[in-house]
Design a protein around this nucleic acid. Structure first.
Length: 277
DNA sequence: AATGTAAGCAACCGCCTATCA
DNA sequence: CTGATAGGCGGTTGCTTACAT
């Protein structure tokens, strides 16, 4: 199948958007919506391709875009979610209202990856529990690019365990779950001192999600209080499982399943290592 | 002050998937 | 069922800015 190029028509503009273009796009979408991105630029009188318009709107012009630097809590959520989901930026962005996948991707590559690398470098043994530094990498870190190339954690499938500091137990993650109608009570999140808490994160490869796992294996892996959380707090009709371990396993292969799994660990407050199946 | 280099980020590219005729 | 199309996504690029020398 030959894909029709959308941006090769002569006269279509590329590169940075001007304030005039922004204004045209914004006012058009406010009036007519964006049901058809490809037709939108023509209708709006913009010399841009539909993709470019869509990207500009989603990443910059949307009214619910959150501006400014990422908070420590947001950065921690990104790191945790990346541990679970990998480079699924849109899925991570779904946990951070007002942030875009592009923005998160940029933050990851410019700040967080280095932060993890620095933390990892401070660990003589990657399996040994050690507190991560909270300090941000400064631009003066002239060795950072070299480190990224040689020790990129996203390319290191054998990193069994990465630990990091959480800034607060009341993360946006929890509030986002609440906003999705999943009836999460933040008080359940029984982290210790917010300034001194550790959360063990798990690197899980694709085989983990796809392999057949017995109920006993799942049980032994889950936080000890997880079934209490499941049975007492999650309305079945609002969640992809029915309090059944078998159904939990079935849900692993979709985002809700991973959401569930991640949420379980976060809210259990436990430091738990994932056994090998 | 001038120049080189690295960091940050907006935008583009191309692939994948869902949808529809 | 098949092919065309549009939207979505992750990877990458390249420009701008900040900082170091």
């Amino acid at each position: 199948m030959v894909r029709a190029p959308c941006c090769e028509k002569k006269g279509l503009k590329k590169g940075p958007w001007t304030s005039e273009e922004d204004e045209i796009l914004t006012s058009y979408i406010q009036k007519h919506g964006h049901s058809n991105w490809r037709a939108l630029p023509k209708d709006a009188g913009l010399l841009r391709c539909g993709k470019s318009c869509r990207l500009r709107w989603i990443n910059y012009l949307r009214p619910d875009i959150k501006r400014g630097n990422f908070t420590n809590e947001e950065e921690d959520i990104i790191i945790k979610m990346h541990e679970l989901l990998g480079n699924r930026w849109s899925a991570i962005a779904a946990k951070l209202p007002g942030r875009t996948d592009n923005e998160i991707k940029n933050v990851w590559h410019t700040h967080l990856k280095k932060r993890l690398i620095k933390n990892t470098n401070n660990q003589p043994n990657s399996n040994t529990k050690k507190r991560a530094s909270k300090s941000k990498i400064k631009r003066t870190d002239s060795n950072s690019s070299t480190l990224i190339q040689s020790q990129d954690p996203s390319n290191s499938p054998n990193n069994n365990l990465i630990e990091m500091e959480t800034a607060s137990s009341n993360s946006n993650f929890s509030s986002d779950f609440s906003s999705q109608g999943k009836n999460i009570d933040n008080s359940v999140n029984n982290f210790e001192d917010p300034e001194d808490s550790l959360v063990t994160m798990l690197e899980i490869d694709e085989s983990f999600w796809s392999e057949t796992i017995t109920d006993d294996e799942i049980s032994s892996t889950m936080p000890s209080n997880s079934m209490t959380i499941i049975s007492n707090e999650l309305p079945n009709e609002q969640y992809p499982i029915n309090n059944s371990l078998e159904n939990i396993q079935k849900s692993f292969d979709d985002d809700d399943g991973m959401d569930f799994w991640y949420d379980l660990f976060i809210r259990s407050g436990e430091t738990t290592e994932l056994p090998e199946f």
